[in-house]
């Protein structure tokens, strides 16, 4: 073997040094020191879409009902167009232009959880959703998105709830919950911390909650706040173990601009999915409010419950998300 030349030795030393040096740089740059460094110390995250102003001349909770039948033997409400009820309710609250500014991207969040048709009253009434979309566009919204993260197979829920077509017909973007639209987020709630969150709901200018009032076998009554289950992906079946705190956590995380509760037809038994037409009853009522706690506190009476029977309403009240004493609000019935 020949003796190495000086040049060769230098070249080899240089190459070895370069490899070691770059390995060291890479390792230092990507060094995981372990321990507690990965724990972040941020405060709780929230998405608060509420309007700050509350003009004293306007009501805070509006209940729009169909006309009474006038028959004392059969004190029902006569059927009325759900769209009319929405228009009246939102109008009494100051109109949609109070909530939507020109150019806003508005997300309308109905309940499209189940593969049920409107008669079963498990999903929000499509005509209520369509009217909210129309009002938002009329108020100058640039884009109105209608979406939910369903429980059953989403394509089927969106179609068979009638909401897909109804919303599309009035020009809304209907977004299906695809896997790529969920991003991991720290909610930092009491029981909900790191969860995949449905991005359209957190990347909006305004969010309008359009839940349906119905019975729920575990939490007794669900409406506005429980509708935020549709905010989460992942295995949200675990939330049931502490359903009330979960609902309160979600309501803390997301406070909508406006809540329009659909009680046109209300599921009284076998909630939240229903499935039997006889389990639901026509009530021809729409509730519009800026206070999602009051919406639930008022709404639970529709199925014969009281707000203090329902723990999550209690919790949300205590957390200051709204008031469960809806009687103290400025109430309007139209």
């Amino acid at each position: 073997m020949d003796a190495l030349s000086r040049r060769d030795i230098l070249r080899r030393l240089g190459a070895a040094g370069l490899v070691l040096g770059s390995a060291a740089v890479l390792a230092r740059a990507r060094w995981d020191q372990g321990g507690a460094a990965s724990l972040s110390l941020d405060g709780p995250q929230v998405r608060d879409y509420r309007k700050r102003d509350a003009p004293p001349e306007l009501p805070q909770l509006v209940v729009a009902r169909g006309t009474p039948s006038g028959d004392p033997a059969n004190p029902r409400l006569l059927a009325s167009d759900p769209a009319d009820l929405v228009r009246k309710a939102v109008g009494a609250l100051g109109g949609m232009q109070r909530f939507i500014s020109r150019g806003d991207i508005v997300v309308v969040k109905p309940n499209i959880g189940w593969d049920r048709t409107p008669i079963h009253a498990a999903n929000t009434n499509p005509r209520v959703v369509a009217e909210v979309v129309r009002l938002a566009y009329d108020a100058g919204a640039k884009r109105v998105i209608v979406t939910d993260a369903s429980c059953n197979e989403p394509n089927r829920c969106f179609q068979r709830s009638g909401i897909w077509k109804a919303a599309y017909d009035v020009g809304a973007d209907v977004i299906l919950p695809s896997a790529h639209r969920f991003r991991q987020m720290r909610l930092k709630g009491e029981v909900l911390d790191d969860w995949p969150v449905y991005t359209p709901l957190v990347n909006a200018d305004k969010v309008i909650n359009v839940p349906i009032a119905k019975h729920h076998n575990l939490s007794r009554y669900t409406g506005a706040m429980k509708n935020w289950y549709g905010l989460l992906g992942g295995r949200r079946n675990r939330l049931h173990q502490n359903i009330d705190t979960s609902i309160a956590d979600l309501a803390t995380f997301l406070q909508p601009t406006l809540t329009v509760v659909d009680a046109v037809r209300v599921l009284l038994r076998n909630g939240p999915q229903g499935g039997n037409v006889a389990d639901a009853r026509d009530m021809h009522t729409v509730i519009a409010t800026t206070d999602q706690v009051a919406a639930d506190a008022y709404g639970c009476q529709l199925i014969g419950r009281k707000a203090d029977e329902i723990p999550y309403i209690h919790m949300a009240h205590q957390r200051g998300l709204g008031t469960m004493h809806w009687q103290n609000l400025r109430l309007a019935e139209v």
């Binding site: 076998n217 079946n237 049931h240 076998n270 499935g275």
Partner: peptide
């Protein structure tokens, strides 16, 4: 408490 199974049970009556 849980009963997610009952919630998802699609038959009527469940």
């Amino acid at each position: 408490p849980c009963i997610v199974c009952e919630e998802f049970c699609p038959t009527s009556p469940k």
